[in-house]
Amino acid sequence: MSTPHFDDLIGTTATLTRTVTPEQSAKAWGNGLDVLATPVLLWLSEIAAMKVIEDRMQDPAMSVGLAHDSAHLAPTPTGETVTVTATLTAVDKRRLTFVVEARDDQATVLRGTHTRAVVDRDAFTQKLADRT
């Protein structure tokens, strides 16, 4: 697999905006609260990071999440809008680091980093098949 180059994308930002649905609430995850669930917020930060590099990804390359180091700082009630931003800040061969932040209408609700790796889709799919 020829690994795409990302060095020139350092500093590039992608943003996504979502209205929090009942299915995305902590209540749906067994917490009982009608606020955006932390796992969903982390997932949204991954999607924002993927958007930064999506134009560079060509088969068989794909990116996978490696790590999160983020703090969920404030609750976002169901029905409110959250805006998630990811900025590519570092490239180490196939390891990409993003600063992520999310805001709702009142506050910053998430701040941290997310790390992704660029891998070969076919090799990854084969490893998965070997495990099942």
Rank of each mutant, 00 (worst) to 15 (best):
112 G>R: 01
48 A>D: 05
80 E>I: 00
102 A>F: 00
94 R>M: 07
2 S>Q: 10
109 V>C: 03
89 T>D: 12
66 L>K: 07
24 Q>K: 02
22 P>C: 09
64 V>Y: 08
4 P>R: 11
75 P>Q: 09
13 T>P: 01
124 F>C: 09
36 L>N: 10
45 S>H: 05
39 P>R: 10
35 V>L: 12
79 G>H: 03
84 V>C: 05
108 T>M: 15
70 S>C: 15
50 M>V: 00
92 D>V: 06
1 M>C: 08
92 D>E: 14
76 T>F: 06
16 L>Y: 12
5 H>G: 13
90 A>N: 12
12 T>Q: 13
51 K>R: 15
31 N>Y: 10
109 V>T: 13
94 R>I: 04
97 T>N: 10
43 W>V: 05
120 D>H: 03
39 P>F: 10
102 A>Y: 00
131 R>G: 04
75 P>T: 04
123 A>H: 15
69 D>V: 06
120 D>T: 02
30 G>F: 13
65 G>F: 04
82 V>H: 10
20 V>E: 13
81 T>A: 07
77 P>K: 05
73 L>A: 03
49 A>W: 02
66 L>Y: 07
99 V>W: 04
71 A>H: 09
21 T>C: 01
83 T>Q: 12
59 D>W: 14
118 V>Y: 00
15 T>D: 02
129 A>Q: 14
29 W>P: 03
35 V>H: 08
11 G>A: 11
81 T>R: 05
11 G>K: 13
46 E>Y: 04
116 R>V: 01
30 G>A: 14
75 P>R: 06
26 A>C: 02
47 I>Y: 03
107 A>L: 06
14 A>S: 03
43 W>F: 11
124 F>H: 13
60 P>H: 02
83 T>E: 15
89 T>F: 09
129 A>L: 13
105 D>C: 08
50 M>L: 10
38 T>Q: 13
117 A>W: 04
58 Q>I: 12
76 T>R: 10
86 A>W: 00
11 G>C: 11
